[in-house]
Design a protein around this nucleic acid. Sequence first.
DNA 1: GACATATAGTTAGTTATGCAACTAATATAA
DNA 2: TTATATTAGTTGCATAACTAACTATATGTC
Lengths: 151, 151
Amino acid sequence: MSNNQFKRGELYSVVNGMATTAVARRLQKNFRNAGLDITIEQWSVLYHLWKEDGLSQLELGNRTFRDKASTTRLIDNLEKQELVVRVASKEDRRINLVYLTDIAKPLQQITYELANQTMNEALLDITKEEIDIVKNVFQRVYDNLTNKDLL
Amino acid sequence: MSNNQFKRGELYSVVNGMATTAVARRLQKNFRNAGLDITIEQWSVLYHLWKEDGLSQLELGNRTFRDKASTTRLIDNLEKQELVVRVASKEDRRINLVYLTDIAKPLQQITYELANQTMNEALLDITKEEIDIVKNVFQRVYDNLTNKDLL
DNA sequence: GACATATAGTTAGTTATGCAACTAATATAA
DNA sequence: TTATATTAGTTGCATAACTAACTATATGTC
């Protein structure tokens, strides 16, 4: 069960929607203009840390649909760029808690602005009912497949 | 414009739907049992060749949402496994036409069977109307974003 | 307490991805 | 017809993906 999770490479786009790509592209371009070379994948990790700082690597992997090996290396790279630090948990020393640095924190504002703006453009003429149907269909397809151990 | 195409890593899942993953997993497991180690990505190329043999690399890249560099290397690997051969086009010698070998051809039957079976399981209780709505929403999100050059 | 088991994370190995710079062949324009 | 631009494909580079094997810490059971 614990090993029966989504894999990012295959399903991330579905789960997060097509607009994610556009948001990430825009962010990437913007960060690059500001001298920061952040990949789309790294951005997805930062995004979750802005929502909740100090997550464990495993939890970050779950939230971004990555296995732990991929998560390890993504955080390696983020640490190299000093956007993030690993801190061993006091309660359980197996666990690394990941915290944003002072370099990463100010990026949140512009990220959110760009994300909102892009989402609004992407979903311009899509109604709430349609979004609900799409979500519901995905959930049922997912259920149908996981029931058969196919995902 | 020509460079403004989908990139597989980001959008393949959306375009082809979640069920693709399950189909590919099942195929991969089955092929492996038969001694053939075909990756999910390689399978996606074979799939299009079964539909239409002798496509150019560029056309294969378009149909599988990959850039030409990725396509080159996927076909390298398929050629190593002798599932596919490159033949220079007589009309335009820049073009490589990609053909299935006699090893690859018989795999089509089992592939299609598994794909149908998996699709039926995935879409078990989804109605045609719902599928149409999902497709339509994707198309409109895609249009909204490409209109702004965001994809 | 000791031994087996589970969990968090790392490392190694292979494939894949995207960008950019390149080669070779073809098409266009002067 | 020669110079220029375009097109198809390849190669180099860095990042990322997944699997499997590994280390270290924690938990459970006898």
